[in-house]
Simulated scan of single mutants.
Amino acid sequence: MTKELSSKAVAVYGAGGHTGRFVVNEALRRGLRVVAIGRDASRLPAGVEARVASIDDVGALDAALQGCGVVINCAGPFLDTAAAVIAAALRAGCGYIDVTAEQASAEAVFENFDGRAREAGVAIIPAAGFYGGLADLLATALATDGSVSELNIAIALDHWWPTEGTRKTGERNQVPRVVLQGGQIARMPTPAAQRDWAFSAVHGEQAMVELPFSEVITIARHLRVQNLRSWLTLSSLQEIRDTTTPPPQASDAQGRSAQRFEMVVQAGEGATARKAVARGQDIYAVSAPLVVEAAERMLQPSFDRSGALALGEAFDAKDFLLSLKDVLAVQWD
C-alpha cells in the first residue's frame, strides 16, 4: 500500500475511553497526525492535540473536526452518538468510521446517511471494529463472487472482561437482534439457539449461543447471503452478564488484556465447508488497527469511494486482512 497521505489529521472522538486510547496510540504509532476529541478534557490522552466537544454541541463538534480528514468514533452507545458525529463530519467534508457492535446503530447509518455522504463525496463506514468489521472482512474474503448461501460466524473468547462502555451500551441497546433468513433481515427467534463448535486447540470445543452483532448489518449491505447465523461462546455471555466480572486489565506493554479470541466465518456445513479464521489478543485493542488501517487508506489521495459502506465493501478484503498480519493470524480456504 502506498503511504502517500493527505496532510489532514485523524480525529478520534471518545479518545479518553478504553478503545479510544488504543486507537490514538495506533494512529500515533503509524505517524499520523491525531486530534483527540472528547466530552471531558481531563480524560483526553496527553501528548496530542486535544479538543473538547459534547455530542449535543453542534458548534463545538464543527470546530473539533476542522482540519481533519477522517473521524473515528469510539464513543458509545452509538445509538446516541453516531448521527451527531456523522452530521458534523459531513459538514466538515470529513470521512467517518466507528466501532459499533449495535445492529440498530449500523442499520440507521446505512439508511440515513448513504445519500448524504455520496452528495458530500465522503465515505461513512460504521461497525469497522472487532464486531462488525472483522467478520465482514472474513466473509468477503470467502465470498469471492460476492455471493454465499449459508454463513455461520462463531466467536470464541477465553474471557470477556467488559469495559464501562460495553456495559452502558448493553443497558442502552434494548432493540431486538436480527439475523439473515432467506436473504432478508428478520428478527432473531427466541429463545436463542445453542450448539457446540470445535475451535482450534487454544479454545477447543465450546458450547455456543446465538448472539448476532453488527456483522449481520454490514454483511447484508453488500454480500448476497441467504442465511447467516452468529454464535458466541456461552461462557462469554455468562461472564458479561455477571455484574461482578471486572473490566479488562493491561497484561503487556501495549496495554492489552490477556484475552484471546478466535473468529471463524464458515460457508456451508460438513466436509465441503470453507472457512476464514482470525485469531488474536484483546477484542478492544484489535479494533484499533482495524479502524486506523481504514482511516489511513481513506486519507490516500487515490481513495475515491463515497457513501455509507461496509468495511469489506470499501476495501479489498484479503489485502486489508494481510496488512494486519502483525496483530491478526488470518487464514482462509
Results as ranks from 00 to 15, higher is better:
residue 62 D to Y: 07
residue 2 T to Q: 07
residue 42 S to Q: 09
residue 231 W to Y: 07
residue 78 F to I: 06
residue 66 Q to P: 00
residue 239 E to V: 01
residue 94 C to Y: 13
residue 215 E to G: 11
residue 77 P to V: 01
residue 112 N to G: 06
residue 95 G to C: 05
residue 285 A to D: 00
residue 273 A to L: 03
residue 249 Q to W: 00
residue 40 D to W: 03
residue 8 K to R: 15
residue 235 S to L: 03
residue 310 A to L: 07
residue 129 G to Q: 04
residue 237 L to C: 00
residue 133 G to P: 09
residue 189 P to Q: 08
residue 211 L to S: 14
residue 171 E to F: 00
residue 88 A to S: 11
residue 330 V to L: 00
residue 314 A to W: 15
residue 291 V to L: 06
residue 70 V to Q: 12
residue 328 L to I: 03
residue 13 Y to N: 07
residue 276 A to H: 06
residue 14 G to A: 12
residue 318 K to S: 13
residue 51 R to C: 14
residue 135 A to L: 08
residue 222 H to S: 03
residue 112 N to P: 03
residue 94 C to F: 07
residue 68 C to W: 15
residue 24 V to N: 09
residue 62 D to T: 10
residue 259 Q to A: 15
residue 278 A to N: 12
residue 154 A to L: 05
residue 40 D to Q: 10
residue 312 G to P: 15
residue 42 S to I: 00
residue 271 A to I: 04
residue 307 G to K: 08
residue 333 D to S: 11
residue 119 E to H: 12
residue 146 G to M: 07
residue 149 S to I: 02
residue 240 I to D: 03
residue 120 A to Y: 05
residue 317 A to E: 01
residue 226 Q to R: 12
residue 97 I to V: 11
residue 263 M to P: 02
residue 256 R to N: 11
residue 75 A to W: 11
residue 174 Q to A: 06
residue 85 V to P: 05
residue 218 T to E: 04
residue 273 A to T: 03
residue 72 I to K: 09
residue 146 G to Q: 10
residue 304 D to S: 13
residue 198 A to C: 05
residue 15 A to Q: 08
residue 225 V to Q: 09
residue 155 I to W: 14
residue 288 A to W: 02
residue 127 A to Q: 09
residue 47 G to M: 06
residue 238 Q to F: 08
residue 168 K to D: 13
residue 118 R to S: 02
residue 184 Q to M: 07
residue 306 S to D: 06
residue 249 Q to D: 03
residue 121 G to L: 04
residue 121 G to Q: 02
residue 81 T to Q: 03
residue 258 A to F: 02
residue 265 V to T: 14
residue 302 S to K: 04
